[in-house]
Amino acid sequence: MTDHRVPRIRGLALFAAIIVAIVLGVVIASNLWFKRELDKPWPQDTPAAAAPAAPAASSAPANAAAPARTDTEDAQPAPPLPASVASATARVVQRTAFAPPPEAELPNDDFGKMVRLGERIFMQTGTYARAYVGNQLNCVNCHLDAGRQADSAPLWAAFVHYPAYRKKTGEVDTLASRLQGCFQYSMNGKAPPADSEVITALQTYAFWLAKGAPVGTPMPGSGYPKLKKPPQAPDYARGEQVYAQNCALCHGADGQGQRVGDTQVFPPLWGPQSFNWGAGMHQLGNASAFIHANMPLGRGGSLTEQQAWDVAAFMNSHERPQDPRFTGSVAETRKKYHDSDDSLYGTTVNGHLLGSGGTGGGRKNGGA
């Protein structure tokens, strides 16, 4: 008797073999396609494609070529990133290199209370350290975002970089003595005692902001990013135009900032209520670097480096309070403390000898 099941079984086996062959073919083809895609070089000519190169931005030139391929093909260097993309990428990497702890992590204890006091002094210096302040500035005016922002001399960087030798004082300064100097020069006041609650609170706040930061190691975002000397010498007239277009809205045409009641909303940039001739911001290099990285507020990097140098020269061509180290002679004080192109102290601008007092500098009537 014939068994009719044998052809049926053979047919099912053949059908199954065909299905398996199709599946294997699809898998093999897919693998080959993915391999070809993975072997392709990353495109380098768009901002989106630039992201994989970002981690190297802080240790290599911003427009450096991507590493050559290492497979069996001829090594071909990738084209450089567009300058604007490379600059933006480097800035993002630098600004995110260290992040101080969020305020929500402040401990609710006596240590936390001292940190909070330091923050209040930093933000409202004339209110919480009134006895030591001689103008209308607050620490936060030059150290933005409550001392957190990279490239604006953040307080967390100051904590990990002191003690340090400073040419200005000719000795090794501690963080306490550095803070005392800020009150003498930037705040045009007097130094609180090193063991005072004011200095203790500020140091404690700096310590807390620096949680997790390496001590004594150069850190991206510390201080102000130094600018090269401009192709053209800083110019008062060009700086006046930059100021009118970009700065006067907040700081006023007369440079005296803006107040709302008893609160100084935007700081004065010159005149009796600003920093004195001994402050670091009177130096063109510091002022231009700060301006380029951070100003106009919220639009840092929007001015060219030349514009930053020019407007720094305009700002510092106006009179301000005397250097506390004044020897009785502007010429002698310049020779001893300001003898460089970085300082306009002791130079004559529009017929006025800067450092001699009064409302001179700038235009002859003292205005901007």
Rank of each mutant, 00 (worst) to 15 (best):
R166V: 01
R166T: 07
K167F: 13
K168Y: 12
K168E: 12
K168P: 00
T169F: 04
T169V: 07
V172I: 13
V172L: 05
V172Q: 07
V172G: 03
D173E: 13
D173C: 03
T174M: 03
T174E: 06
L175Q: 04
A176M: 00
S177Y: 06
S177G: 01
R178L: 12
R178T: 14
L179K: 03
G181R: 09
G181T: 04
C182E: 10
F183W: 01
F183S: 01
S186C: 02
S186A: 11
M187T: 00
N188L: 01
G189L: 08
K190N: 12
P192V: 06
P193Q: 05
A194T: 11
D195G: 06
D195N: 15
S196K: 09
E197W: 10
E197C: 00
I199K: 07
I199E: 11
T200G: 14
T200C: 08
A201Q: 08
A201N: 09
A201M: 10
L202H: 11
L202S: 12
Q203F: 03
T204H: 09
Y205G: 02
Y205A: 07
L209N: 04
L209V: 05
L209D: 05
A210K: 05
A210M: 08
A213I: 08
A213H: 04
P214S: 11
V215L: 08
V215Q: 12
G216L: 01
T217D: 06
T217W: 12
P218E: 04
M219D: 02
P220M: 05
G221D: 01
G221Y: 07
G221Q: 03
S222P: 02
Y224P: 04
P225G: 08
L227N: 02
K228M: 08
K228I: 03
K228A: 15
K229G: 10
P231K: 10
P231M: 05
Q232R: 14
A233K: 12
A233T: 15
D235C: 07
D235T: 08
Y236F: 15
Y236I: 15
Y236W: 15
Y236E: 13
Y236T: 04
Y236G: 07
G239M: 10
E240W: 11
E240K: 14
E240A: 15
V242I: 15
Y243H: 10
Q245P: 00
N246S: 13
N246R: 14
C247T: 10
A248F: 09
A248Y: 09
A248C: 11
L249I: 14
C250W: 09
C250L: 10
C250H: 10
C250V: 11
H251W: 13
G252I: 12
A253M: 14
A253L: 15
A253G: 15
D254A: 15
D254P: 08
D254W: 09
D254R: 13
G255F: 03
Q256I: 13
Q258Y: 14
R259G: 12
V260I: 10
D262T: 14
D262M: 13
T263I: 08
T263M: 12
Q264T: 09
Q264R: 07
P268H: 07
P268I: 10
P268W: 07
L269G: 00
L269H: 01
L269R: 01
G271L: 01
P272W: 03
N276R: 01
G278E: 03
G278I: 00
A279I: 00
A279E: 01
H282A: 09
L284P: 04
G285M: 04
G285W: 05
A287C: 06
A287S: 06
F290E: 05
I291D: 05
I291V: 13
H292K: 14
A293M: 01
A293G: 01
N294P: 05
